[in-house]
Amino acid sequence: MFKIDPQSNRISRIETKRFSELGFRERDHLQEWLANQPDALGEELLIIQKEFDGFDDTRERLDLLAIDKEGNLVVIENKLDDTGRDVIWQALKYASYCSNLTKSQIIEIYQSYLDRYCNGGDARTFLCEFFEVPDLSEMVFNSGTNQRLMLVAANFRKEVTSTALWLLNHGIQIQCFKVTPYAMNVDLFLNVEQIIPTPEAKELMIGMSAKEAEEKSTVVELKSRHKIRTAFWGQTLEAMRNSRCDLFNNINPSKDHWLSAGSGVRSCPYTLIFGVKEVRVQIEMTRADTEENKFLFDSLHGQKDKIEQSFGAELQWFRLDSKKASRVQYRKEFEGHNKDNWPEMIAWLVENVTKLELAFKQPLIEINTKLKTLNLASEEEV
């Protein structure tokens, strides 16, 4: 590997190193790097435990346990300068142990990880955010024999790569990543390269496994949920049309768990939420510019008492500092998929979205006008 110097139009060699000569250790360094930057392995993964030893009748520990966007468990085994001969056998054992983990056990494992290494947090909430679902009943975790293996090392022995390719051809999801440290003066670099399967081969394999993916119970479950949501929104929109609320007059039923209508202010929709355990009405600030969203939210929050008095109840205000959007919501718990509850749920949604619009309409217009003025002033300064 070389560093390019555009000014001199020359290249300088970046020296290949061994982890051992740099003083790096497997557990203290390589494992920590991947735990804190799992997308270095080429995809979005959520680390749910490290040094996991929750296996009955064994003292063995797997290096990192992760979950992918499909809900599959991923066993990550790290070696430094050499894989050794037994790394695949080791990883296969761990995958077999993990194959029996239930959804509730996975949540408990992740909660333990958060409590021990991340200063706490709610595992269910973080998992919902990772999977972008309103609740975890939408997800199937650790389905069947879909556990995945990732092997990470600086050098792979032939017996390891040969076995990995054989397993890959027999439907075992295994990947090998070669990690190489480099040095140039005092600067250190790390290259992470997937060598099995090659990216080109992986693309070809996606089509081969598509049929199996379609057969997953998650897909069947989601199709059922989509039918339920479409039916619920159909009844809700019919009730809206027979009410004094005209926000949703031009909106069609959806398979999603949410339904939005414009407020008259750009990217600040009124949204209805239909969940398994609750329904919500909310107003969202979802502009492309974070500062504009926070300005809208803060300005509305400055009129919190007046708005809540108009609405007739205390609202929940979520500025969401770590995210681009913000929202204000009002919720009530229901067993959402029990159709006997639908008339009461729909009446609640109609009543409260009507009240929400009345409470926010004028403040929102005034604040939006002020925001436009501020933006215009900023443009003039430029």
Rank of each mutant, 00 (worst) to 15 (best):
F19M: 09
A231V: 01
A359H: 00
L259K: 06
E26M: 04
C128E: 11
E15M: 00
A35V: 11
L22F: 04
E21R: 09
E51A: 13
N100M: 07
C176I: 01
L62I: 14
K370G: 03
Q111E: 03
L168V: 02
N100P: 10
G120Y: 07
L358R: 13
P6N: 08
V192A: 04
Y270I: 01
K304W: 00
N352E: 02
V160C: 03
D81K: 01
I307N: 06
A325K: 10
N78L: 07
C268N: 12
G234H: 07
L80Q: 04
L45C: 04
D39P: 01
D86T: 11
E51V: 05
E333G: 09
D57Y: 09
I307Y: 06
G23S: 03
L204S: 03
L272V: 03
T58S: 13
T290I: 12
F274V: 11
P343H: 07
I365F: 05
Q49P: 02
L190Y: 02
E335I: 14
E351Q: 05
P6S: 00
R61M: 04
N169D: 13
T145C: 15
F232E: 01
F131H: 05
D82F: 07
K355G: 02
A183C: 06
L222H: 12
Y97R: 12
Q329C: 05
A288E: 14
P134H: 09
E308N: 08
R241G: 03
T369K: 13
L259S: 07
G42C: 07
D115V: 08
E333C: 09
F19S: 06
A153N: 08
N72K: 08
I14G: 02
V186Y: 12
Q316L: 12
E381V: 11
L165P: 10
M345Q: 09
